[in-house]
């Protein structure tokens, strides 16, 4: 048997080498484009190049002077936060019957609820503008938020449904048989297990709304410029390196948020213990 065991060990090593190679390759692949943009944003030159022509913070300085960038970034943050909040409520609720329920047309409904992701968003942008104009609604931030909700709610539904599909129904039965009522079961047993799925969906939803150009291009009123629209103006006729600097700032903020989230989650674990 030693040969077999040796073969097993070789197989074991091969397996982990393969996993690590693919995983590190994947990480590099995810990282590289953003890295290039961030490095290029430090260029001292007049236009965006890689490698950068000298290093400077001039495009970040310019960014700080662009008041409209700050205003539009703040607006995008508000729109994305509001849209995500609504989408999470609608999406999490819808996920339960879509996974657990038994009713006619459930599969069709399940597929239907994905259609906002499948349709190129310019089609929805056009359609939503026709609709809003026809019923005489003025273009405003709430209208923009609702149109974002329509295109981001599928993320929440899908990721929550995936978590729910993996949740052991025995867990709930156990909780119920131990005397917990429906709400208590939901809050103490179901929700904590679904939280990663909901958080993932919310993150996708938030970023998609924050980054949405096409729908906003059609549904943002004249004084409701969002960050992607501003970015578009900065790149479209002339690639302003400050646009790359915006990406660098977003990367920095996200890094802070991830750290903070980690710290907060760690903290809740400590408290629960």
């Amino acid at each position: 048997m030693p040969a077999g065991r040796l073969g097993g060990r070789v197989g074991h090593v091969t397996f982990w080498v393969a996993i690590w190679t693919l995983a590190l390759g994947g990480l590099l692949y995810l990282l590289l484009p953003t890295l290039i943009i961030v490095v290029a944003s430090f260029t001292a030159g007049e236009y965006i190049t890689f490698p950068p022509q000298g290093l400077s913070l001039r495009w970040f300085t310019r960014l700080m002077a662009l008041a409209e960038v700050r205003v539009s970034a703040w607006r995008s943050l508000i729109v994305a936060t509001a849209a995500t909040a609504v989408a999470v409520v609608l999406g999490v609720a819808a996920a339960f019957p879509l996974v657990r329920g038994r009713f006619a047309g459930r599969e069709a409904l399940n597929a239907f609820l994905m259609s906002p992701l499948i349709l190129p968003s310019l089609v929805y942008g056009l359609a939503a503008l026709m609709f809003v104009s026809a019923i005489g609604l003025p273009l405003s931030v709430p209208v923009l938020v609702l149109s974002h909700v329509a295109i981001i709610v599928p993320y929440v539904i899908r990721t929550t449904a995936a978590s729910l599909a993996l949740l052991d129904p025995h867990l709930e039965e156990a909780a119920r048989s131990l005397g917990a009522n429906a709400w208590k079961t939901f809050l103490r047993v179901i929700l904590p297990n679904l939280l990663p799925g909901i958080a993932t969906g919310a993150a996708f939803a938030f970023i998609s709304s924050f980054d949405n150009l096409t729908v906003s291009l059609f549904l943002a009123g004249p004084r409701v410029e969002t960050l992607p629209i501003r970015l578009f103006a900065m790149i479209n006729f002339d690639f302003d390196p400050a646009a790359a600097a915006i990406s660098a700032v977003l990367v920095l903020i996200t890094f802070a948020v991830v750290l903070l989230a980690h710290w907060a989650v760690g903290l809740t674990r400590v408290i629960r213990l």
Partner: peptide, 12 residues
């Protein structure tokens, strides 16, 4: 395209 779609409402 946007102006056409907003027919009936305010033009963009």
């Amino acid at each position: 395209a946007r102006t056409k779609a907003s027919a009936g409402g305010r033009p963009p």
